[in-house]
Design a protein around this nucleic acid. Structure first.
Lengths: 241, 241
DNA sequence: GCTTGTGAAACGTTTCACAGCA
DNA sequence: TGCTGTGAAACGTTTCACAAGC
């Protein structure tokens, strides 16, 4: 009944650099889901919510919600539940989106330009401060009428990362260029990479990496469509016997 | 050392409709990673690969690779490893991308249009056969010069799903419209939804759902950037003591 | 030698169940 | 009564280790 989804994420095959108290990765992933739901509740002027209700909206048990939050502290009020505004602030603090983050984007193709005009990033405190491409025809061109960013050549990446204190790189280049771009960004001092190229990148342990492969998402979806259909016909056959 | 990433996915909070022999969901996710890597190896004309080498490229252990594949059958050759072309065909068959799939897209904004021009979908056998939007100004307009698709009104969704045998719906509308669109698509008979709106959707158990929330991906990345930096300064402090 | 496939052990996550509190 | 926070039990996944095969 309650549907879920998301775990929109990423996962790194490399070991965490150190145990920050060993919070399960899936719990961190769900923290973002809680935050998304809480922000929707806040817009509806909801004041408090119980672990049961929050879980139900996401297809999770109440115990799961409580345990996930308990990894990070005691945020609830027995008999009451969680205060929506308070919990939003706490989760933002934990995830790090209470601060602003500077990002840059490499690859000014269709996907790159779509991401630049995506409002959701700015809402979470992310600002794309520079765009790079290696196509000489694109360099110097403005991205679009609204943003005042112009496309820069790759040679200037290190300078921009340093001078503008950019921590996050978004990679929207073709798969065969992605590793090279990642290497350059890491050399320039970037701390986290969001990779949209359909390739597994190698990065040192000190750099965070999340890859979003859109075709792979569809592929996984199709597997489940098949599974559900097989299950449905099995039920049908059983019912007939 | 070997980096990973991906698990680009999704996850459904709802129970699988039935046990298809109970393959762990993470294993299915990795199947897509194996396939992506194998396709790259195939382009390099590599003939065979061992579980150790395949795992290393993805930051996984050899045992993990073998166990994942063993859920679906015996594909390897002792002493040799796996034949690249053979394993590609097998995994495609398991995931369902050896057949073609018709998809439709709802929401002809920036992201929607970027996805339409993304070649990766077609390469995996997905074809977007129709695009919908509820903005009267967009209806009837062609998507771009290359594709001969024109934007259709939402009222025609059911007809298109039925007549063109569309199984997959891609949702690229704003968050507050996503649930309504999902309901309409499900009523029209769609079997799987790839949702890019930052919202948790409710769908019946018979419909597969994957949500990709781009801002959420960045948020998760930032959490890990923080974690790594804290871990690094802790190591530094230890070294100094 | 090298490799796969797999039972068994180790490990991690989720669920249960209840004490404690509003 | 209704709720959180949390140890302990249940469950699931990953890793280990080795028999069997090339």
């Amino acid at each position: 009944m309650a549907a879920e989804s998301a775990l929109p994420e990423f996962q790194s095959g490399q070991r965490p650099a150190a145990k920050p108290e060993s919070v399960p990765a899936p719990a961190v992933g769900r923290l973002s889901l809680y935050l998304r739901e809480l922000e929707a509740l806040y817009r509806q002027e909801r004041q408090t919510i119980s672990s049961r209700q929050l879980g139900q909206a996401l297809g999770l048990t109440d115990a799961q919600v409580r345990k996930d939050l308990a990894y990070f502290g005691q945020f609830g009020h027995p008999g009451i539940g969680y205060r929506v505004d308070e919990l939003i602030a706490r989760i933002r603090g934990i995830l790090g989106t209470d601060r602003g983050w500077n990002a840059l984007l490499v690859g000014a193709g269709n996907l790159g330009r779509a991401l630049l005009s995506y409002r959701g990033f700015a809402q979470k405190g992310f600002q794309v401060v520079a765009v790079f491409d290696n196509d000489p025809a694109k360099i110097g061109k403005p991205i679009d009428r609204e943003l005042r960013l112009e496309i820069l050549p790759a040679e200037r990446m290190e300078q921009v990362v340093r001078e503008m204190n950019v921590q996050i790189g978004i990679i929207t280049v073709p798969a065969d260029a992605a590793q090279r771009v990642a290497d350059d960004l890491i050399a320039a001092g970037i701390k986290g990479l969001l990779n949209f190229a359909p390739a597994s990148l190698n990065v040192p342990e000190t750099v965070a990496l999340a890859t979003v492969d859109l075709a792979l998402c569809l592929e996984q979806l199709v597997f489940r469509v098949n599974t559900y259909q097989v299950a449905a016909s099995a039920r049908k056959a059983n019912a007939g016997s």
